[in-house]
């Protein structure tokens, strides 16, 4: 009885198993063929049929192919390397200012520009056709665009402050002579003050005067010290200003390049957000062109 029921319930098992395996074999064969034919569009479809259908949505009636990517998901590094070839070619025209370095199989760092000290701007994900921008690098570029609208730059305040500090120290250094003279005068007055033998009712006034003179002398020697260390501070500040100017130079080149390719930062963002469908669209057109030939 038991045995019979079992047979009834799972009678189709082997057939189903075989068909499922066949489907998987078929999937892997498809994937393999697409890879060797250079049909990246098909590879993208096989890797994520759901997303493919959703974003390309050309044939909404067509059934979505089953997702068997888990069968090949341990091969993403190799797939990523394979897919990067055509993707980077495509990005070379749409984002001509990005440069890529494959630092390990299938993993790509993005560099913004090829100018001196260009910034590492994040990573490229060829599997998902996506830029994973470095958060800090991206944030500072975004704020540079935002500030620009008010004619400001990211480092303006810091640079101004350092510049003013240097001006102040330069002044302190140049005033050394007059400070030396003033110290001499204060010391003379102190001596005079100490030699006084005041009447009891004047003692408070003399003491107060002495305190004032001592305070002034202390102030002057402190300023001397600041002036003496001033040249090193000036040099240090100049280096900081240079680093900030460099950052501004880099930001202005980045903005210039984004504008040259996209017109605006917003258009750049929009294009990034639609990179997957734009790229697959271009692959579709490419395959249609080659079909037509």
């Amino acid at each position: 009885m038991e045995r019979q029921m079992e047979t009834d319930q799972f009678g189709q098992n082997d057939a189903q198993l075989s068909s499922a395996l066949n489907e998987k074999i078929h999937y892997l064969t498809d994937l393999n063929d697409s890879l060797s034919n250079g049909d990246d569009l098909k590879v993208y479809q096989l890797m994520d049929p759901q997303r493919y259908a959703g974003e390309l949505g050309t044939d909404s009636d067509a059934p979505i192919a089953p997702d068997h990517f888990n069968l090949a998901s341990d091969l993403t590094a190799q797939l990523s390397h394979h897919l990067s070839n055509k993707l980077i070619d495509y990005l070379g025209t749409t984002y001509p200012f990005f440069y890529y370095h494959e630092y390990e199989l299938g993993r790509f760092r993005i560099y913004f520009g090829n100018w001196w000290d260009h910034r590492m701007f994040g990573e490229l994900d060829p599997i998902n056709v996506k830029f994973n921008f470095d958060e800090d690098a991206y944030k500072i570029l975004a704020s540079s665009f935002a500030l620009e609208a008010n004619n400001q730059r990211v480092n303006d305040d810091a640079m101004k402050q350092l510049g003013e500090q240097n001006e102040r120290i330069t002044k302190l250094i140049s005033e050394q002579d007059s400070r030396d003279k003033r110290k001499e005068a204060v010391r003379a007055k102190l001596k005079e003050n100490q030699e006084k033998s005041p009447m009891p009712w004047e003692a408070g006034k003399v003491k107060e005067e002495r305190q004032q003179l001592n305070d002034e002398l202390l102030q002057l020697t402190q300023t001397d010290e600041e002036a003496a260390n001033g040249r090193a501070t000036i040099k240090e500040n100049e280096n900081k200003i240079l680093a900030l100017s460099k950052e501004e130079t880099i930001l202005s080149l980045e903005k210039k390049n984004i504008r040259a390719s996209f017109g605006s930062f917003e258009a750049f963002i929009d294009n990034n957000d639609h990179l997957y469908d734009k790229y697959l669209e271009s692959l579709t057109q490419e395959s249609q062109v080659s079909d037509g030939e």
Binding site: W116, D117, L242, A243, S245, K246, T249
Partner: peptide, 8 residues
């Protein structure tokens, strides 16, 4: 910093 200066 020498190269940075040339860049700027």
């Amino acid at each position: 910093s020498v190269m940075d200066e040339l860049f700027v």
